[in-house]
Design a protein around this nucleic acid. Sequence first.
DNA 1: GTCTATAAATCGATAGAC
DNA 2: GTCTATCGATTTATAGAC
Lengths: 199, 199
Amino acid sequence: MSEAPPRRARRPSGGAGSLLEIAVGEFNTRGYDATSMEDLSRAAGITKSSFYHHFSGKEALLRAALERAVDGLFSALDAPDALTGSPAERLRAILRAQVRVLMAELPYVTLLLRVRGNTETERWALERRRTYDAEIAALVRDAVDAGEVRAGIDPALAARLLSGVVNSIVEWYRPGRPGTATLPEDVAAAAFTGILPAR
Amino acid sequence: MSEAPPRRARRPSGGAGSLLEIAVGEFNTRGYDATSMEDLSRAAGITKSSFYHHFSGKEALLRAALERAVDGLFSALDAPDALTGSPAERLRAILRAQVRVLMAELPYVTLLLRVRGNTETERWALERRRTYDAEIAALVRDAVDAGEVRAGIDPALAARLLSGVVNSIVEWYRPGRPGTATLPEDVAAAAFTGILPAR
DNA sequence: GTCTATAAATCGATAGAC
DNA sequence: GTCTATCGATTTATAGAC
């Protein structure tokens, strides 16, 4: 009972998922605000109108991308080895998991980290980021209170520097680069031992 | 021989320097691409046309701001205590100086660190940043070769993480915050000893 | 040095045929 | 699901009066 192959439109795009991937790539290359719907449709090989058939607008694309990034980020808090052990052990496990998420969801998390807050969607993303950062800061305080790490600096400052060093990975990491298999552990070790420890 | 005071236009702006400061503030709040000349002139309290009398266009403003940021950044390499001593000592002095520059020239450096490369001016800024980062990376290699720091991770990775932790300061530092007088030394110490060193 | 007015291009988004 | 054509708003930038 073989049917005839489904009638195809002139230039079938790969579906909403494929278009989102293309759009996020363009957003990261030129910046969200500097990327026009014309740019997106050209990159996808369809017209602007066709793009609007899949997404209601530019902000809908941003929303879908940021939701994926936020979901990934928060999943680091629930990593298997992040739920047990001392505060410092859990914190170290979360750092490793966060680096893994950054690597696996690189374009989406990159976009999230560049959001400025111009629209409701962007403000929502910023709020979710603040919540995540607050969770990390609380864990740092727990680790200091438990006497597991040296409180040479303000725990709030330590949490900010931790976020900074981890998030900065999106500025240079590219998939397939040699020697990045150990990156999650390397970053966690650098955070606890120092990036440039004295001999 | 007192002359009459110079005839004044209806709403005298504070000159090009003042307008640049206002523009950089707007760029950092909304993002460069999302900020229109209309936004800038409204923030300055003059019309768009008047703004064009002081700057030839939006990109000229960006260029002036980025030049100031780049000059500040490179000045960290020439800090008095960065020219003598062992590689590790010089590296630590440069880190401190870089944090001081970030704090003193916060809005300009913030703008520099967000540049994407859409125009010739932005690509020039990215190229200058690459040159600066290469200088830091060379110093890290020197310190490792001299046996002053532990080469637990790839020196190139160490240099990237260093840049990440230092530059991330612009994401949260605000002038006048209490307890930031020791920030340059705190950041340098965290880089060498660890953000969360074990007890 | 400021203003009003406007040009010329581009933007996000929609209408409607196939 | 794709297309052509277009709308209305916005953008960068300029002309020219005061």
